[in-house]
């Protein structure tokens, strides 16, 4: 069974008062990760087909075709993992 580790290369906390979280997907799995997320999240906006503004369970985030996503207002790592699991697995 697939796990988050299959898709996520690393999670980076950002420096700054916003405490955004950046999720970097594994290069070889990024297309699959993006496809899964696009199926489950709702598209709010797309820029040139390479940056997507999405919503999922009242949470808005951005997904980049480079294989990264940025989440705002995430409480903790547990909440992030729960959301990523719902989006990816």
């Amino acid at each position: 069974m697939a796990t988050l580790e299959d898709y996520v290369a690393r999670v980076e906390g950002t420096c700054g008062a916003e405490k955004d979280v950046i999720v970097v997907f594994k290069y070889e799995k990024k297309d699959e990760a993006i496809a899964n997320i696009m199926k489950r999240a709702k598209m709010k906006n797309s820029i040139a087909g390479i940056i997507f503004e999405l919503t999922f369970q009242d949470l808005s985030f951005r997904l980049y075709t480079s294989g990264k996503a940025i989440f705002r207002s995430i409480k903790d790592r547990e909440e992030l993992n729960r959301i990523l699991a719902s989006l990816l697995l």
Binding site: T14, G16, E18, D20, R62, K68, I70, R72
Partner: peptide, 8 residues
């Protein structure tokens, strides 16, 4: 946020 800008 600045991080959005950097990722973009």
């Amino acid at each position: 946020s600045s991080h959005d800008v950097a990722l973009l």
